[in-house]
Design a protein around this nucleic acid. Structure first.
Lengths: 205, 205
DNA sequence: TAGATTGTTAATCGATTAACAATC
DNA sequence: TAGATTGTTAATCGATTAACAATC
């Protein structure tokens, strides 16, 4: 099962499957069919089976997939069977909300550091963290070996922050700022500008 | 140019193009080629031309696309040449951040109402708004004719909130809660659970 | 066993890319 | 005019779906 052989569309659905399996597990289900998952997710049953079959034969004919074992397997493939340290940059309203969000840890992530450039904010509390001076970011992130960054700054600062993160060795960036980032090929960016999905929907209203 | 004839993948790229054009305009550019847009967005130039050609002939050979006129056209197609009222449900940290966010208005959205079910929060301030009792949501949203909702509640409450929004006439939902929502066919949902894109990236780390 | 559901194949469907005549 | 870039076609590429033998 060569990583480069799995299409990105398939990989991009795995976290969705994992989330649904975790919910199913909470409901006490031990086994779930592709048909049942399909109804819960709006992804076709054939697609779910095809996607999962790329990683192994987890299902049993006549019964479906064992919920806990499949969730474990997906966590391993997604590498969220460990907890990743994340660096947060930009501690405004959104940054604070992220720093205080309780939903990261049990799904594989922990905000380990928070940076801002505003002297008023540096040294203040954000969740469990003390906001640090962005000028110390490169050294701190490098030393800690952090590979994941979250950008919650205004758009005007985001590219510069991205450059700093890349320089510090970060390989995955979650960008809340409403701007496209240019990064080297070995760095991944995912975008969470809320206006983009809103505008995708108003087209159809 | 029949709406149902435009593939959703194409529609889904329009807000990205619009955002890039707005940035280009701020930089003082009046004309931009598909090649230049391609470099700024990581979408191929051929794809940009093909997408845009589905809506009309906005470009000029030898020069490219007029930035302001194309942005106007995209805003019209996306229907964000007006400002949509949005209802926010769930006023925790994230809900507060959304209520205070300044980036919505000039891109076509305005949070017009905010609801929570917590008596401690009802009546308090969130941005410019007073948090209202969720039990009054259906009537208030219906009367105001609001078509767009944002869910920023915990996962456990999200489906129930979605049902209320649908009942109140909402046709587009932006869901921050980490759960898949089941809604009627004429209602659209977009998802912004931050853990999904994070897990998509850890696969490759 | 009988019923249900998987994993997989082949067929269909749709999206992307390359290339170039048209034209600003 | 010469150079640049569009809009569009045809070819390629890739993803989804339908169907079913295998099997729990």
């Amino acid at each position: 099962m060569d990583k480069s052989k799995i299409p990105h569309v398939v990989v991009s659905r795995l976290p969705i499957y994992l989330r649904a399996l975790e919910h199913a597990q909470q409901e006490g289900l031990t086994c779930i069919s592709s048909q049942e998952l399909s109804e819960r997710l709006g992804v076709s049953a054939a697609q779910i089976r095809k996607d999962l079959s790329m990683f192994g034969e987890y299902g049993k004919q006549g019964r479906g997939y064992p919920v806990a074992a499949l969730a474990d397997a997906l966590r391993r493939h997604l590498q969220v069977d460990k907890v990743w340290d994340v660096v947060l940059v930009g501690v405004g309203d959104l940054g604070h909300a992220l720093a205080r969000y309780k939903g990261f840890t049990h799904r594989g992530f922990r905000i380990a550091m928070a940076f801002d450039r505003d002297p008023e904010k540096i040294g203040t509390q954000a969740g469990d963290l003390i906001v640090e001076d962005i000028r110390t970011l490169a050294r701190r992130v490098q030393e800690a070996g952090i590979k994941i960054g979250m950008i919650a700054t205004p758009a005007a600062a985001a590219q510069e922050v991205a450059n700093m993160l890349v320089f510090a060795g970060v390989k995955a960036i979650l960008n809340y700022a409403p701007i496209h980032l240019t990064v080297p090929d070995d760095v991944r960016v995912e975008y969470l500008d809320p206006v983009i999905p809103l505008q995708r929907m108003t087209y159809y209203l």
